[in-house]
């Protein structure tokens, strides 16, 4: 029991550090990729290939003046970024990062909490995520921030519907809400993306909207709203908001890889006859590669597409994605019935 607790604590801290590290270097990779897409080099002055750039940015953010508008609600103003960061880090708890580790003959699952309603947990946390932005935008007492917050909330509520509907098909096929169970059923190459291409597409689009990434970055929208919900934030509070976005990218990539791309499975990997711990490590790297792939897609889209207009965003969400998702549910239901 004690070893289990120690193991879970270690795993949780490892995942925490990993998410933070990945988020830190995502900022560099984002800028690098942006540079390459625009025929530039990207940051390359701080350390070799700009590897120290995230550190420089972090130090800069820490040393910036901590400014708070006089008319702001102090408690909520601080609560906003904290909540955003907290919620962004919370989702990683239910993601199965790899097959069981075997230490001294005991199997340790590489998952912090195997909640039997894993997917519901993810969605519950995701819907809390909008509160951080809403509270921050409201507490700043600034019209741009408020507009950004209003946009964020309506956007996230609209897209959560289609997102949940697209996941229902996965749940119908798997017959379980547990993330571990869903990954286990995608053994080998029977990934959900091949059975649910439409569901995957809807989920991908909604994931872009949920993480406020371009082309759905209306809550930030620097051309119209200065900085959107974080206009009045500075120093590390702003850093928390920006950081949380990258953590969200990482985690949503993990969720998508888990639900649709077979999690840590890769065809033929289990037949190589590796020892359990090496196998666990290789599987983890497989999952990590898939997450990196999604991260790259996020950046690729960001530097390709312009931002949606607000009415286009709402039209896409309510008039296209939700009906498509419902249609997908119906078709999946019919196919499952026919196969019985």
């Amino acid at each position: 029991m004690v070893t289990q607790i120690i193991y879970k604590t270690l795993l949780a801290s490892f995942i925490l550090v990993l998410s933070l590290l990945v988020a830190m270097y995502s900022t560099l990779i984002e800028r690098k990729v942006a540079g390459w897409f625009q025929d530039r080099h990207g940051p390359n002055r701080a350390g070799p290939w700009g590897l120290l750039q995230p550190l420089a940015d972090g130090v800069k953010l820490f040393f910036k003046e901590e400014f708070m508008p006089g008319s702001a609600d102090k408690l909520l103003y601080i609560l906003g970024p904290s909540l955003t960061m907290f919620v962004a880090l919370l989702t990683s708890a239910v993601i199965p990062w790899g097959p069981d580790l075997v230490i001294n003959g005991t199997a340790y699952p590489m998952q912090v909490a195997d909640v039997n309603i894993g997917i519901l947990f993810v969605f519950a946390i995701l819907s809390i995520g909008v509160y951080g932005i809403m509270i921050g935008g409201w507490a700043s007492n600034n019209k741009y921030a408020l507009l950004g917050a209003v946009r964020a909330s309506s956007q996230m509520i609209s897209y959560e519907l289609a997102m949940s509907l697209s996941i229902i098909t996965i749940v119908m096929m798997t017959g379980s809400l547990s993330m571990r169970e869903i990954v286990a059923q995608q053994q080998g190459f029977s990934w959900n993306i091949f059975y649910q291409p439409l569901g995957f597409l809807i989920f991908l689009i909604c994931a872009f909207a949920e993480t406020n990434r371009s082309p759905f970055d209306l809550p930030e929208c620097e051309t119209e709203l200065v900085g959107g919900y974080h206009t009045e934030y500075s120093s590390m509070k702003l850093g928390f908001y920006l950081f949380a976005e990258y953590i969200n990218m990482f985690i949503s990539g993990a969720v998508m890889a888990t639900l649709f791309l077979g999690g840590y499975h890769f065809p033929g990997l289990d037949k190589l006859g590796l020892s359990p711990n090496v196998f666990a490590f290789v599987s983890f790297m497989v999952l990590f590669t898939k997450i990196t792939f999604f991260g790259f897609i996020y950046m690729w889209i960001r530097w390709t597409l312009p931002r949606f207009r607000y009415d286009q965003l709402m039209k896409l969400g309510w008039k296209s994605l939700i009906p498509l998702a419902i249609l997908n549910v119906v078709i999946t239901g019919v196919v499952i019935l026919l196969n019985q």
Binding site: W36, F37, D39, W300, W303, L305
Partner: peptide, 21 residues
Amino acid sequence: AILNGMRITFGHLFRRKATVQ
């Protein structure tokens, strides 16, 4: 259209960089 746009941006990843260091 989106896929075509993504193809174009992807092509730019490997272009010669315009920057003079």
